[in-house]
Structure formats: structure tokens, C-alpha cells
Write a protein that binds this DNA or RNA. Structure first.
Lengths: 209, 209
DNA sequence: TTGTAAAAAGACACCAGTGTCGTTATAATG
DNA sequence: CATTATAACGACACTGGTGTCTTTTTACAA
């Protein structure tokens, strides 16, 4: 279907593989998917697959990167809006456009946890994981710092610690999402409650509707 | 060293294996340890190992069970003491005897996460994981309910939701512990802050020293 | 139309890990 | 001491997955 070359066809094929891989990873988890699964899902031969990706790890990291990029982009877009308050911005960063906790969660989240947990003894992966953690942390730290600087948030707690507790909260939910059946996870209720907590920690006055 | 039989020697040998396995699992994680690792650590032959455990999963579940048993026992001991308050009891359950958040964490915690996350598509393991989750939840729910019933805790929030947020908090920390290098995890600070939150949610008046 | 460079295919060799099974060694028993 | 049941051993066959390499196919250029 595409032999000598043609940027578009290559791009297309690559996307087809990445796409298939996303589905397979989401469905089977990282450890349990094999290159064969991906081959089949993408209707591509062994050789075809290895033409584009050196191994499963390479493939997964590609997906991680793409995901991260789109999050960063989304985040940059947030800055272009006019923001009522840093509290609003915080909600926006935590829950996206709706500013509301929802029952939804990234299908790939469990596999991502898997990837970093099982890889915790591998230097490369661990460092990569740490970097992602720090980046995630910064997103929140920045907002909180700014909010504290302008007096909207209390300085009772160090911004980084508050940010950490946000990340830990999200991590905890992701973990439960990964392990428990959907109906057992009360994402919304727990997040609502967590927000109460944040309001307390930051001494937010006005109530959100 | 032990041929025809003798309850004690069998018990001893079995323990030797379990012990070795604990170390290996803690060090290598669940997915990455092989039966060979365990054999070597325990100085036991292949056949010797399979005499006692059918496979890696069997071995790990044995450890899980033992751990759980000792936790349950510990917990029952707590009930025998005289308790000043349900708040105290809650702290006791969360942090053990010291009633204080500490920087320590179970060495096997990461492997346990691994076990349940990678096994989330396996019916047996998932059900087992759910049961453990529910049991863990109940430990907290019970205390909170009792505290609410006697008026020590506010009924502002449903006991189960508060319990869930405790479990999620602990899960989140375990996850960070599993992924991040020790110095990056601020177990104590985060737990301290979480306690503030609990005090708020339960409307605890008196301050702990 | 033909030549060709490179992509796609899939057979293959290889490896690590598993669980089994026949053999060996030995603690208990009489 | 001899017998025996069985725990412990370790070689082995098997499996599932990997990454490579040769062959085939085909888009493009001349």
C-alpha cells in the first residue's frame, strides 16, 4: 500500500499503529499486551510494526508523549482565557472545561500506572516518571503560588504541599479506578469532598455554583 | 535435610521460602521476580519450591494472606485497649501505635499495587482485590460511624465517603511511594495536612498533641 | 514501461521462564 | 541395620513472546 515513501502515507500508517496500540493498551493493560496484539489490531505485519517502533516500551512512550503534549497544549489554552479567579483556574486545571468533578477517567490511566510501577526499578523509566510527576506538580504549584501572592489564597500551607495533596488525591482516584469496578468508584463524591478540603486549606470564601 | 516428613521441618522450610519470597518481591516487584529468583534467595531447588507453591501467584497470595491476618490481629488488639475517643482510635488505625504519620511504608506496598493493577483483567484477582478494598474500607467506616453515633464526630458527611477519602489518601501515598524516590515523597507532611482535613470533615474540636 | 528504493510481510532462530517428572537422598520406623 | 515413604533435586520439554533477516511487493521516477 505504500512502498518507496510518501510522508503522508508513512504518517498515516504510524498513526494507525499508535491508534490501535492505544486501544489495546487500554483494554489489556501494559504488561499483558504483546506486539502481536498490536499487529492484529492495526492489521499490520510483524515487520511492518517493527519498522516504526523498536519495541513495546517505545510504542507506549510515544503514546505517553502525545498525551502529555495535548495536555500541555490544553493548559496553554487555559492561560489565554480571561480568568475570574485563581480558584477558577485551579478548578479548570483539575477538571477541565466543566470545572466539575466527573465520573469519567482516562482509559489509559491504569496502564500508565502499570507502566511506571512495574518500571520502578528501571532507571530510565523511573527518571521519566519523576519528571512527569514534577511537571504535574508544577501545574498546580504555580496556580496556588500565584493565588497566594495576590491574596486570594491563604498562605497557611506551603503551595507545594497543597499541590502535592492534589496530585496524591488524583493518583489515589486513578488507582481505585484501575482496580475497582466502575460502580464502586465514587469519583464525583470524593472529588467534591476534596474540594471542600481545598477550600479550607486555601481559605476560599465565596462558594462555587 | 528433611525427607520423610516432620511437621516442624516442613513448616520451617515453607517459612524459609515465604521469607525469601517477601524479600525478592519487595526488591524486584511482582512482575519482575521469577521463581528462579525465589529459589536462589531461599537456597532451594526448583522441585523443592514447587513442592510448596504451585506458582508465583500462589506464593504471592500466601504472603498477602499472612499480611492481612497480622493486620486483622493487630486491629483486634486495638479494640481491647481503652480508648479515649474515636478520634484516637481512628489515628491508631491509620498510623499504628505512634498515632503519628511517619515516613515509613510497607516495603511490599508497591508490589501489592502491581499485583492488583496488572491483574485487573483477571476475574479471580479482581474480586480478591475488591474484597480487600471493602475490608479496608470497613475498618474506617466502622470507627467513623461509631464516632458519629455517639456525637463525637459530625454527621456532615456520610461515613463511607469519609472512609473512602481516607483509603484514597493512603492509596495515593502508596502509589507515590512506589514510583518516586524516597526523598521525594513527603509522607509525613501530606498526612499531617490530611489530618487537618479530617478534623474539618468530622468537626473535631480538641487538638491532638 | 521499466527500474529501483524502500516499505511491508512473515518465517525464523532465539531466549527466558514455566511446570513436570524421573531420580536421588534421607529421616523416621521397626 | 534395613526398609520405606517422601522431600528435595535438577534435567527437560514446552511455550509464548521477541527482534531480525530475507523475500516480496509496490509507489514513484525516468
Amino acid at each position: 500500500m505504500s512502498p518507496k515513501v510518501s510522508k503522508e502515507h508513512i504518517e498515516q500508517r504510524r498513526n494507525k499503529i499508535v491508534d490501535a496500540a492505544k486501544h489495546v493498551f487500554a483494554e489489556q493493560g501494559f504488561e499483558n499486551t504483546t506486539m502481536k496484539h498490536v499487529m492484529e489490531k492495526a492489521s499490520v505485519s510483524r515487520g511492518g510494526l517493527y519498522q516504526y517502533f523498536a519495541n513495546k516500551e517505545d510504542l507506549f512512550e510515544t503514546i505517553l508523549k502525545e498525551d502529555l503534549d495535548s495536555i500541555v497544549e490544553e493548559n496553554n489554552n487555559l492561560l489565554k482565557r480571561d480568568i475570574n479567579s485563581y480558584w477558577d483556574l485551579l478548578l479548570l486545571r483539575m477538571f477541565g472545561d466543566s470545572k466539575q468533578p466527573s465520573e469519567e477517567m482516562d482509559d489509559l490511566a491504569p496502564s500508565k500506572l502499570e507502566f511506571f510501577i512495574t518500571g520502578r526499578n528501571d532507571r530510565r523509566r523511573r527518571e521519566y516518571g519523576e519528571e512527569r510527576y514534577r511537571n504535574g506538580l508544577r501545574i498546580y504549584t504555580d496556580v496556588i503560588k500565584a493565588g497566594q501572592a495576590c491574596g486570594e489564597f491563604s498562605e497557611k500551607y506551603d503551595s507545594e504541599i497543597v499541590a502535592r495533596s492534589i496530585v496524591a488525591h488524583i493518583d489515589g482516584l486513578a488507582l481505585e479506578h484501575a482496580i475497582l469496578p466502575k460502580h464502586e468508584v465514587k469519583l464525583k463524591q470524593q472529588s467534591d469532598m476534596f474540594l471542600e478540603y481545598l477550600k479550607m486549606a486555601l481559605e476560599i470564601k465565596k462558594d462555587k455554583e
